[in-house]
Computed example of a mutant assay.
Amino acid sequence: MTSINRAKFAVGDLVHHRLFDYRGVVVDIDPGFQASEEWYQAVAKSRPPRDQPWYHVLVHGAVHTTYVAERNLEHDTLGEPITHPLLAQFFSRFENGHYVREGRIN
Rank of each mutant, 00 (worst) to 15 (best):
S3T: 10
S3L: 10
I4E: 07
N5K: 14
A7V: 08
A7Y: 07
K8R: 15
F9H: 04
F9A: 05
A10I: 11
V11Y: 09
G12F: 03
G12W: 04
D13K: 01
D13L: 05
L14A: 01
V15P: 05
V15I: 14
H16G: 03
R18S: 07
R18W: 00
D21L: 06
G24C: 01
V26I: 11
V26T: 01
D28H: 12
D28R: 12
I29L: 10
I29S: 07
D30I: 06
P31F: 04
F33I: 05
F33Y: 15
A35W: 14
S36A: 04
S36T: 15
E38P: 05
W39H: 15
W39M: 14
Y40A: 03
A42R: 13
A42L: 11
V43W: 10
A44E: 13
R47G: 04
R47D: 06
P48D: 00
P48I: 02
P49F: 10
R50N: 05
R50K: 15
P53W: 04
P53I: 01
W54L: 03
W54N: 00
H56V: 02
V57L: 00
L58M: 06
V59Y: 01
H60D: 05
H60E: 00
G61I: 05
A62H: 12
A62F: 07
V63L: 09
T65D: 09
Y67M: 00
Y67D: 04
V68Q: 07
A69W: 03
E70S: 03
R71C: 13
R71P: 09
N72A: 11
N72K: 08
N72F: 11
L73M: 01
L73E: 01
H75V: 05
D76R: 02
T77V: 08
L78T: 14
E80S: 06
P85D: 12
A88T: 15
Q89H: 14
F90A: 00
F91I: 08
R93S: 12
R93A: 08
R93Q: 09
F94P: 05
F94N: 02
E95H: 13
N96P: 00
N96T: 08
N96V: 07
H98F: 11
H98V: 11
Y99F: 13
R101C: 11
E102S: 15
G103L: 13
